[in-house]
Design a protein around this nucleic acid. Structure first.
Lengths: 196, 196
DNA sequence: GTCTATATCTGGATAGAC
DNA sequence: GTCTATCCAGATATAGAC
């Protein structure tokens, strides 16, 4: 890894952990093991360094979670895949949801990193299935927001959850693991066509 | 309103809008219309000013959303009340969810303001109903997390939602209003006992 | 490309007059 | 209680030698 790559890796870690405001150019340089002036040499300023990282990251994230939606499997299977993949991704990057929320609420310009097509087409597909009567009649936008909300909740609320449920060491991870299955069951219940 | 009250009101607004780090003692004093030195006279330092506000706020919030849980109505009605009350509260304070998430992830000590009893007893009650077979067999903690996740999602993700769905002016508020009913329907579907 | 030293700015907090 | 002036720490960014 050359210096530029070292800086990118270190900056990602520190920005995600501390947020844009909380991150220090000093901390990043120490983490990367390079001189602080190098950060400015390669990336001019803090804001630009920040953008570079998350343009790269989001270009792999969205294709991954939406991949299976193109297959010819049932919508129930597609939702199962989405929930599994999304939850797995979050479990290996548990700070991402809070990071994204904090960043984009403070710096609305940050949402540019969200590519439009992936989410739009997933929602459109769900709406078609609903309109065709294959699943319950629902607003696909509301449904999609609900699924994502259910998936990210434990990650954004971890401190409260630990406080309220006073969990033992490791218990939180168990909750996450069980949650995948539980959310999939909830989604199936929501999608199920009501009896007349 | 005396100076102390003016400061509290101004500080609440600025802290919620800008976060703890982003808030400036200068900005707060201007907003309150008092001299900056007054902030230190009444509240010593920034951290203490911050705590005072949210101890007061949370002491009204939790009793409100959990009030109806003590009645003798059905669990479905209780959940409807919870979702309505909670969503209404958020609609009049739409920045609160992001604020809480950002603050408590950065300053874990902040969770002390969350009183334990209210949420715990709501969850315990739901678990009893489930174990008794009055609703579907489920993990009440997972269920409760799901409901809260569904309610707060549009508030924490507003910038993405506007970006992805490219909404017209006022369309977001319509989504919020419709969401109350939609989430209530989803919750009913989740709670419904499965046929053998 | 890499480093040291430093300029410059910002913001919380304090001293002290009134 | 209220104000002005100021201190001081911390952080970004730059200048300039090598």
């Amino acid at each position: 890894m050359n210096n530029k790559e070292k800086i990118l890796a270190a900056a990602e870690k520190i920005f995600v952990r501390d947020g844009f405001d909380g991150a220090r150019m000093n901390t990043i340089s120490k983490e990367a093991g390079v001189n602080k002036a190098m950060l400015h040499y390669y990336f001019n300023d803090k804001g630009n360094l920040f953008e570079q990282i998350f343009k790269i990251k989001s270009s792999v994230f969205f294709p991954k979670i939406s991949a299976y939606f193109l297959s010819d499997s049932s919508i129930q299977d597609k939702m199962d895949y989405f929930i599994d993949t999304y939850m797995e991704l979050l479990m290996t990057n548990p700070s991402i949801p809070s990071f994204v929320i904090c960043t984009m609420n403070k710096y609305p310009g940050f949402i540019r990193v969200f590519p439009r097509g992936f989410l739009e087409s997933m929602i459109a597909y769900i709406q078609l299935e609903s309109d065709a009567g294959k699943i319950r009649k629902l607003d696909a936008r509301q449904f999609f927001m609900s699924v994502v909300g259910m998936c990210i909740f434990p990650f954004i609320a971890k401190p409260v959850i630990n406080h309220i449920m006073n969990l033992e060491k490791g218990a939180f991870d168990t909750i996450l693991e069980e949650r995948k299955e539980e959310v999939k069951r909830y989604v199936k219940a929501i999608l199920k066509v009501e009896e007349a």
